[in-house]
Amino acid sequence: MNKNVIQRNNVKISGSGKQPMLFAHGFGCDQNMWRFVIPAFEKSYRIISFDYVGAGKSDLRAYNSERYSNLNGYAQDVLEICRELELADVVFVGHSVSSMIGVLAAIKEPRYFADLILIGPSPCYINDGEYTGGFERKDIEELLDTMDRNYIGWANFLAPAIMKNADRPELSQELTQSFCSTDPRIAREFAAATFFSDNRQDLLKVTTPSLILQCSEDIIAPLAVGDFLHAHLKNSELKVMKATGHCPHMSHPEETIELMKAYLRERTIHG
């Protein structure tokens, strides 16, 4: 049953370096979001980017609600790619929810990973007592509603890709043109898996060194969250960026690249 992982996750490989750098996109998008950053690393790294099952040009038939309603299911995508390509010493670069997916993967199979670069990470989006995640439950429910409204005109709303026989490439093509994320049901499940997740307990289990890239004024991952992560991730470095918003790799690629390079340089020296 091991479908070809490379095709399933639309894995793309480029670059002329040896050490693998694995780019994992966040919720609401696909690997395209890395196109402003990847060229800067192609010379020194072997670049691997992919779409999670359900996103971009991945194989929608491989989508499984049980598996992907949990971030561990997404972490399995990452680990299966590592296994399939026999990767080692990976620099994992994850945006947003992919940061926690990377954390889960690195706890399960630390041997694959050399470093984790976490862009706009948050271990828990919902406020909980002393902890400030930034959102209340009802905010997330309203987000799901906003998503539903933006998918309202879609013909396939009633014909979800979860039905295994819904093999209609022309549809998915049309969808990727209007949104990075493909099927509305999948997007909704990914949103719920993302924003209702709580991985605070997992942070202490990580042994892989990490860089936290924290944007100033990021509504999705506020400063307090970055501090929390830094305090709980062993061997982590926290950089607060000049960049605002939640997507510095798209809005401020130069600063993102510069900070990544500085961190990696430091790591090779003091490794």
Partner: peptide
């Protein structure tokens, strides 16, 4: 909630 949607969908869409 719309700010989240702006960051995860609207802005990436415009940019890409």
């Amino acid at each position: 909630p719309s700010r989240i949607f702006y960051n995860t969908h609207f802005f990436p869409l415009l940019k890409l």
